[in-house]
Computed example of a mutant assay.
Amino acid sequence: MLACWVLAGVLGAIVLLHTLLEVHYFLRMFFTLFLARFCKKRVHILDETSVYGICTTTDVDTLLYHMNNARYLRELDFARVDFYERTSLYREIRSQGTGVVQGAATIRYRRFLKPLSIFKITSKIIYWDDKSIFMEHRFITPSDGFVRAIAICRQRVLDCSAEAVISVLMDRGVKQNQNVEAGVTQIPHVRPQIPPEVARWLESNEISSATLRQPENVTTPC
């Protein structure tokens, strides 16, 4: 009888946990961080990283034949954690400031991902200013190399300068391999030109912000 009550309690706790939290999301985030920290090599801040995923039955939309649009942005959480850890970007931000948040994101869907299809997400920094770091993510199917979707995300750093963070990481570099005498990737510290699509996107964000700041869009408490 006691064993039955214990089993019922354990099952109840599991059901409650899955009801209150998206358990598999946190488990996958843990394993992504673990692999990035202990199993993958460190990379330079301007290098490109990649993670793999699969469109499971819990990712599909109501029509049941392709991945839900919202899941693409969710998948970017894992890609960013992998990038942050392997480049030491997050640790450097924490050492100079308080953290980093997602400021904005835009995504363009080119061709849907079918259920149970494998995809790769590549991540790289394409631009930065004093307050933000801009990253480009591509969803690619390895079978044909086709870019299924492309996203641009603006990461806002808190209480520090993005330029200062990038400068430290670029100056530090990473060891390429033990056989290289210098042992450090040498990349000139030059901020890249802002990509045209990012420039237009920022203009759109500024227009949106200006519209929301207009008096008629400001709500007053009752």
Score class of each variant (00 low, 15 high):
L35W: 05
T219S: 05
T219L: 11
V101G: 00
Q178Y: 11
V81E: 00
A8Y: 03
Y72A: 02
I166G: 00
C153Y: 01
T19Y: 14
H137G: 05
P221N: 11
T106H: 02
W5Q: 06
L202H: 02
E75T: 01
P215S: 10
D159P: 10
T220H: 14
N177L: 13
F83H: 00
S50F: 08
T219N: 10
Q193A: 10
E203H: 07
I14K: 02
L63F: 08
D171L: 08
T98M: 11
I14T: 03
G145F: 03
K40D: 15
T58G: 06
Y109E: 06
V6K: 06
S123H: 01
D82S: 05
A149Q: 01
D130C: 06
S208G: 07
S123G: 08
S167V: 05
V43Q: 02
F26W: 03
L7F: 09
E22W: 08
R94H: 12
L212T: 07
R138E: 14
V51W: 01
R71V: 06
G183Y: 04
R200Y: 15
V184K: 03
S95E: 11
L113E: 00
T122E: 10
I121M: 10
R37H: 14
H189I: 06
Q176D: 13
L73M: 15
D59R: 03
I194R: 03
G183L: 06
K124P: 09
V15Q: 05
T220V: 14
A199M: 11
T62D: 12
R80G: 08
A79L: 03
F112C: 11
G173S: 05
L76G: 01
A13Y: 12
R156Y: 05
T220E: 15
P115L: 07
T141F: 09
I125S: 00
R156T: 08
C222R: 11
R191F: 12
I187C: 12
V10E: 04
R213Y: 08
G97A: 11
R191W: 12
M135I: 04
V174L: 15
A182Y: 05
V180H: 04
Q178R: 12
T106Q: 04
I207W: 10
Q193R: 07
E203Y: 10
T19S: 15
C160R: 01
S143H: 08
D144F: 07
I194W: 02
V174P: 04
A104C: 11
Y25C: 13
A13K: 03
D171C: 04
V218W: 05
G99A: 10
C160Q: 12
Q96K: 06
T57W: 11
H66R: 06
N205E: 12
A70M: 02
R108I: 08
Y52G: 07
A36Y: 01
T57E: 14
A151K: 00
R111H: 08
T98E: 08
L76S: 01
V198A: 12
V23M: 09
C222A: 09
I126A: 13
A3G: 11
A105C: 12
R200I: 10
L27S: 09
L76A: 07
R42Y: 15
T49G: 08
E22D: 15
E75W: 02
R80L: 14
C4L: 14
L35A: 14
V165D: 01
F134G: 05
E197V: 06
L11A: 01
E22Y: 09
T32A: 13
Y25G: 15
F112T: 10
V51Y: 00
E92L: 14
